[in-house]
């Protein structure tokens, strides 16, 4: 080990350094504490490695000696109790205590929702007799639509919302092409359903965002408040459904027909509502589509643009030119804007 020759990566391969930064280990602590004084020429690498590690600091649950003793008691109890181990519901003090109770309440609620979801009739017979109203937003324009049940829909650009003139007595169903933010009025006797292609999203009172442009590779449903159940019509029989709680987002990949569940930052996903363009690991194709939609322009691409692992960033109420400048910084391309045409070269 020759510290003089250490690069950032070498620090990150050094277990003693990792222990020092992440776990405040005191072994060799002196070496690292005095590192700056002894190796001034390596400070930059040292600091960068340290920042990266600190950035990777995870919220780890800590267990005290007492917690671990209780867990061992629990373990021994299981050993003698029975051969088949059930998911425990007895041991409510100690361990996770209150969290455990909370978790089971949530589960009961969720179970209720999912039962209700699947007991709904899939098709409604009288559907044909009800007139459908279409709200259409062209490129570069978004709008707010108030529904008769009190729900509010903020419809993004280049998007269509189809609403029945009258909701049914037991169901509120709308159809969306594109992207919208829903604030659904509570009405437990009439679930609210949004059809997007072959995806159905069912909710009680809640607010969430759906992004489902036909040309997108995936459909994204992001929940801000309340609970939402998302299902794929193709695979209802296989039970491919995803339950979402606040700050969770389901991404449905059209190619694999699979849902992926993850978290999201509400400020970012629904940024468009506030005039903010937000990209997360976006490739050029995605960026192009968003900008075409947002600014009502068309791209002519003469030189392929590569964002590598994807571009992440936000633009708040910026001109198209500013946005393109920012992007050209990240991926090295030139551009010009003439009327509605953006030329990438």
């Amino acid at each position: 080990m020759n510290l003089q020759k250490y690069k950032t990566e070498d620090f990150l391969e050094d277990k003693s350094f990792i222990d020092y930064v992440l776990f405040n280990s005191t072994e060799e602590g002196d070496l690292w504490d005095n590192f700056q004084a002894n190796y001034p020429e390596k400070i930059k690498e040292f600091e960068t490695a340290k920042s990266i590690l600190l950035g990777l600091k995870s919220k780890e649950r800590e267990f005290s000696e007492n917690d671990l003793e209780e867990l061992l008691v629990d373990l021994k109890g299981r050993q003698s109790a029975s051969k088949s181990i059930q998911i425990s519901s007895t041991n409510q003090n100690g361990w996770f205590g209150i969290q455990k109770i909370a978790a089971s309440i949530v589960f009961i609620l969720l179970a209720g929702v999912s039962y209700w979801y699947f007991s709904l009739p899939v098709e409604q017979i009288q559907e044909t007799t009800i007139a459908i109203i279409e709200k259409i937003n062209p490129k570069g324009q978004n709008s707010t639509i108030k529904l008769k049940d009190g729900s509010v829909v903020r419809l993004n650009a280049e998007s269509i919302l189809r609403i029945p003139e009258q909701f049914k007595s037991d169901l509120r169903e709308v159809e969306l092409i594109g992207e919208a933010f829903f604030e659904v009025a509570k009405d437990s006797s009439r679930p609210f359903i949004i059809k997007t292609g072959n995806i159905k999203t069912k909710v009680l009172g809640t607010s969430f965002n759906i992004k489902s442009y036909p040309e997108d590779e995936n459909v994204k449903i992001a929940v801000v408040t309340g609970k939402v159940m998302v299902g794929n019509l193709d695979s209802l029989e296989t039970g491919e459904e995803v339950l979402l709680i606040p700050n969770q987002m389901a991404t449905y990949h059209k190619s694999t027909r699979l849902f992926e569940k993850g978290s999201f930052n509400p400020d970012d996903v629904i940024a468009w509502k506030k005039g903010v363009i937000y990209f997360h690991e976006a490739g050029f194709e995605e960026i192009k589509e968003v900008l075409e939609r947002w600014y009502g322009v068309e791209f002519r691409v003469k030189k392929q643009v590569d964002f590598g692992q994807g571009f992440t960033g936000r633009f708040e109420k910026e001109s198209l030119e500013t946005v393109l400048k920012g992007l050209s910084y990240a991926a090295d391309f030139d551009f010009s804007i003439e009327k509605d045409i953006v030329l990438i070269k």
């Binding site: 600190l54 950035g55 919220k59 969720l110 039970g239 995803v242 339950l243 699979l258 849902f259 569940k261």
Partner: peptide, 20 residues
Amino acid sequence: RSLTNRIDENHYNFYFEFSV
């Protein structure tokens, strides 16, 4: 109660949030 259905050794999430 599995929330996403497809889970095997190649399909699962890893939840790691930035916390510093």
